[in-house]
Computed example of a mutant assay.
Amino acid sequence: MKTSIKKVVIASMAALSMLGMGMSVNAYELNPEVKDVTPALREASTVGVWTHENPAMKNAPNKDAILVMTFGTTFTDTRHKTIDAVEKAIQAANPNVPVYEAYTSHIIIDRVKAKEGIIKLTPEEAFAKLKAEGYTRVAVVSLDVIPGMEYTYDSVVTKMQVNNFKKISLATPLMYFQGTEGEPDQVVDFLQNLKSQFPKCGPQDAIMIMAHGTPHPGNAYYSVIQARINQLAKTDPIFSHVYVYSVEGRPNINDVIPQLKEKGYKHVTLMPIMMVAGDHANNDMAGSDPDSHKSQLEAQGFTVSTYIHGLGENANIRNLYVERANEALADLQK
């Protein structure tokens, strides 16, 4: 198998008939000697926007919708400023295609209903609603930041719907491609857009950007983010002050503190790189408990400022999510 990645359509009708599907995706270009593209090989070589066509519904009329999947939040204010704002931006960019929403966290769905009387749909419920309303083609947009455990869930729950729609596409998360073989470096794109919310830094000021962290191998993206930060610092001084860490993965705060001390920083600004500024941002990062990141840093002699805003509040980041939605919709409408 070649390792170059580019926009290709791998044609193998025999393999397609085994799955009852057709795809138009970014994929590894298979070696020409591969004559029988098995369903397993096709799925394994699929990268980028995933698209599925259901031949059993080929004669059904096209009626398109966008479904935004998000973990959700119980924090009402940040929901309006982030999740709702991103969905509105996607809708504004595609005024003729309605935007629907699904929460992947059942716990959050229950809490929002109990607290606010608002009913949020699960992905399964949202797909059922779309089918009942006659939609035949659905572009699914994930508000995940990296392709970790949550994005895997989005992918699986989407693929379970393949027999219910004429065509389904699944967008990539905020960061996916890393500049391999001519593909965009979306990690650098993210950082350049995130920079708009960085404070000015003097020699003793550092910025710690807080990710979620995951046991999924996708956690390795955080190491890539730090590597790109270090690379960008060679030409843009602001990045020489920036360190990534996570709540539930590596690197964590204890990995970063020795680096801050080595560089002689005295003041640290903490900011989340999560869609919403929810429990992790308000409590784990900025809370008053002794084990919060703010308290831990203060105990080590640093003065600490907190920037409690989710990524969805940043217009530049919202535009990146609009791009992801547009990519999925473009593949859906081919």
Rank of each mutant, 00 (worst) to 15 (best):
P237Q: 00
I119N: 04
D144L: 07
T122D: 00
A315R: 03
V304Y: 04
K195F: 01
I207H: 02
Y243A: 02
L130V: 04
I308P: 06
Y321M: 01
A15K: 07
M271W: 06
T214G: 09
K166L: 05
G312L: 02
K159Q: 15
Q259T: 10
D331K: 03
N163W: 11
S105A: 03
S305K: 13
P215M: 00
T172M: 13
M208S: 06
H212T: 11
H52F: 05
A281N: 10
D331Y: 02
N163C: 13
N316M: 07
I118A: 12
Y245V: 05
K120T: 02
I109R: 07
S105W: 05
T136G: 00
D279W: 02
N230G: 13
S105F: 05
L320D: 08
G72A: 08
N219P: 07
I5C: 06
D289A: 15
A44K: 14
K81C: 06
Q204T: 15
S305T: 14
I207Q: 00
E327M: 10
N59T: 14
E262T: 14
S155I: 00
A277V: 08
S169Q: 04
K81I: 04
I10M: 14
H80D: 11
A14W: 11
L320C: 00
A233T: 13
V247Y: 00
N26A: 06
F198T: 04
I83N: 02
V140Y: 00
Y222F: 15
P251L: 04
A114S: 12
K200Q: 14
D36Q: 09
V188I: 15
N96M: 03
M175I: 10
E150F: 13
E298F: 07
M18N: 11
L191I: 07
I146A: 07
K129M: 13
K234P: 09
E33G: 14
K294Y: 02
N282H: 14
N96E: 08
M57K: 10
S292G: 01
N230A: 07
V188A: 15
Q178D: 14
A114V: 09
A27M: 15
L329W: 00
T136C: 06
I229Q: 01
N54G: 09
L194V: 14
Q333W: 06
I238G: 05
D255M: 11
D154L: 05
P237K: 05
F302Q: 10
A132E: 08
E262F: 05
V37A: 11
Y307H: 12
R318I: 07
E101N: 15
A40Q: 14
V47S: 12
E116R: 07
F75L: 12
Q178Y: 12
S4Q: 12
Q333R: 15
E181P: 01
E53R: 04
R250E: 01
M271Y: 01
S4C: 10
I238H: 03
P147W: 02
N319P: 02
T46I: 09
N252L: 02
V68E: 01
G312C: 02
N164A: 08
I168V: 15
N26I: 05
G278V: 05
N31R: 11
R318Q: 14
V304N: 06
S305R: 09
D110M: 13
D110A: 15
D284A: 04
K7N: 04
K88G: 10
K88E: 02
N94H: 10
A220L: 09
K234V: 14
G312A: 05
P184Q: 01
R250G: 01
A11Y: 06
M149T: 15
P184S: 07
N316F: 04
D279Q: 06
Y321G: 05
